[in-house]
Design a protein around this nucleic acid. Structure first.
Lengths: 145, 145
DNA sequence: ATGGACCCTGTGGCCGCTACAGGGTCAAGG
DNA sequence: CCTTGACCCTGTAGCGGCCACAGGGTCCAT
């Protein structure tokens, strides 16, 4: 069979919703294999690159780091291995997402408290400013009249 | 009154739980005023710097960006202004935190789905890998036996 | 005088891109 | 045949918010 018709980086970008620069970046950092080049030194991609890049994008959308994506790609290539390792990467990522959610929820709580205490007076009596300021004792700063 | 005894960057770092390099960085980007220098060109801080840096750290802990911190500091200095602007910065930040939480929760949902579908077989039949791979039609890749 | 703990500036690295600058290539239209 | 304009190439610099050097200077106790 004849090899499929290759396509340009711009086409690949459009097909995957990726910026051209991002594709080149993926190549540089090794999550996307360097394709053949045309006589004019243009990158010439095939279906395998489209597939690969789609995988990368989907994984990135799910918040996996590029390191994790590299791992997942490598694991996904070993078609006959058990998929425990894949599962582990996903679980680790999930745990991190859950940690971040917990952190942000704590933050949200603090911010809501802060904002809820605002009495809309002057800055001098603003609870938000007070909450941000350090507690240096009840006397205030020394230079004030 | 005699001016207070100044202290070194290392002392300030310890007092606020900040790395020395971070303090110098804050000075460079203008969230902490450049202090006086000793005859040996060492930075010599006073209580106002301690106060200022504590404010910055607290705000950073609450997830405010350095740009926001700069704004808050400036607003906090105008002691007689109404604190509406402060309130606005805080509210905007809260909204962003809430957006991030929502995003991460959607992510968590997807990841849980993914992981829940894993049947612990081989990579070839792994649902996680399948979910990451693009849907290119039901026939599978062309080279497979 | 010397050792060690601190301080100084300046630079480069981290992540994951994004945005240039300054060129080359290619197909269509005049 | 030549120009125009859309695309492509490499390389570098920038974002935020630091952190970690290297290669020096300073200070204080012994």
């Amino acid at each position: 069979m004849p090899s499929e018709i290759p396509f340009s980086i711009g086409d690949l970008a459009k097909a995957t919703g990726t910026k051209v620069e991002t594709i080149r970046w993926y190549e540089r950092v090794g999550v996307l294999a360097a394709p053949e080049r045309t006589s004019g030194n243009y990158r010439a991609y095939g279906a395998e690159h489209l597939e690969r890049l789609s995988f990368v994008r989907r994984a990135r959308d799910l918040g996996f780091s590029l390191d994790q994506v590299r791992d997942l790609l490598q694991l996904a290539d070993d078609r006959n291995q058990p998929c425990d390792a894949v599962d582990r990467v996903a679980r680790e990522h999930l745990e991190e997402v859950e940690r971040k959610i917990a952190d942000l929820e704590a933050l949200r709580h603090e911010l809501r408290d802060l904002i809820g205490q605002c009495r809309h007076g002057t800055v001098a009596e603003c609870r938000i400013v007070q909450a941000l300021s350090p507690q240096l004792g009840p006397a205030g700063t020394s230079q004030e009249a």
